[in-house]
């Protein structure tokens, strides 16, 4: 039955794009969650909604306008945090509602909600084209490569910004690079789970992975694994049950988090050896 599902072209594209998005969201999400930018994804996705509306209003490919507007939104958010005393969560709220407001105005003046807009709001992974898949793959490869190259700098910046500055890092520039990369990640991933659920993919696999109490590399690896498992199983389950894939992916990710928390509360989690998950170690 699974093989039959996998034989369809739309399923193959959905799974390939889904895995790529799962990987970038969880990798980028590790830094976002640790920097207390958990709702950054939500903020930028709503700005992207404004960007999509601009595209639909002007008759341009909406994803491009979403990218441009979101990157400016991310930079604006960073500037707001740096140059004023507005706290991170309030800055996200300002940027979020601004994007949404612009979007609503443009949507109403161009004749209301269209199918296109709905697919951005709730995700449309099963409907993506070959061009979209290639674009998601290319952007994901770029994001993963950049994150891999800059991971030491981002880790230091995330751990303690002042210490990173004293180590000679150009923290202001790195902070801007960080928000631009995060904005591109959010917009690239929107097709999978939609604007309204994007934060789930950024936050949930990471907080689950952090329950394992491991070092940085292992935590990123666990988070990526949980993300990919949620996406793949979510797409397959949604196909068989004929329900929305975005919601299914998020419900599975939440399920894994709840399961992990239960295991942790019973004391079993600390005993699982990550290198050898089937064995329980006796020294802890």
């Amino acid at each position: 039955m699974i093989l039959e599902a996998l034989s369809y072209g739309f399923m193959q594209k959905a799974l390939i794009a889904g895995i790529a998005v799962g990987l970038i969201c969880s990798f980028m999400g590790t830094f976002l969650v640790l920097r207390r930018y958990s709702l950054f994804g939500d903020g930028i996705a709503h700005v992207a909604f404004g960007g999509i509306s601009v595209g639909l209003f002007l008759g341009v490919f909406p994803l491009w306008t979403a990218f441009i507007v979101s990157i400016f939104g991310g930079l604006g958010l960073q500037k707001l945090r740096q140059s004023t005393k507005i706290s991170g969560d309030s800055a996200v709220a300002v940027v979020l509602v601004s994007g949404l407001a612009v979007g609503v105005i443009l949507v109403s003046s161009s004749g209301g909600f269209s199918v296109d807009l709905f697919s951005f709001l709730f995700g449309s992974i099963l409907l993506i084209s070959q061009e979209d898949t290639i674009m998601i793959l290319a952007l994901s490869a770029g994001i993963i490569a950049t994150l891999t190259i800059l991971q030491k700098q981002f880790l230091h910046l995330t751990f303690n910004e002042e210490q990173a500055k004293l180590a000679g890092m150009r923290t202001t520039l790195l902070n801007y690079a960080f928000v631009v990369l995060a904005s591109i990640t959010v917009v690239t991933s929107m097709r999978l789970v939609g604007i309204l659920l994007i934060s789930a993919l950024i936050v949930i696999p990471n907080i689950t992975a952090m329950q394992f109490g491991k070092g940085f590399k292992k935590t990123v690896f666990i988070s990526m694994s949980i993300s990919v498992i949620s996406v793949v199983s979510g797409i397959l389950v949604s196909y068989f049950l004929n329900v929305a894939p975005s919601g299914t992916i998020v419900v599975i990710a939440v399920g894994i988090l709840v399961g992990t928390l239960l295991l942790k509360s019973t004391g079993l989690l600390g005993k699982i050896d990550i290198k050898n998950p089937s064995k329980l170690t006796h020294n802890s």
Partner: peptide
């Protein structure tokens, strides 16, 4: 960058997923 500075208290997230090795390598 050639000066080693250890402040009185370094604040970080209590659940920060970094080992002693990770922090020293920073």
């Amino acid at each position: 960058p050639l000066i080693g500075y250890v402040p009185q208290k370094v604040t970080f997230e209590p659940n920060f997923p970094a080992t002693v090795y990770d922090v020293v390598s920073m």
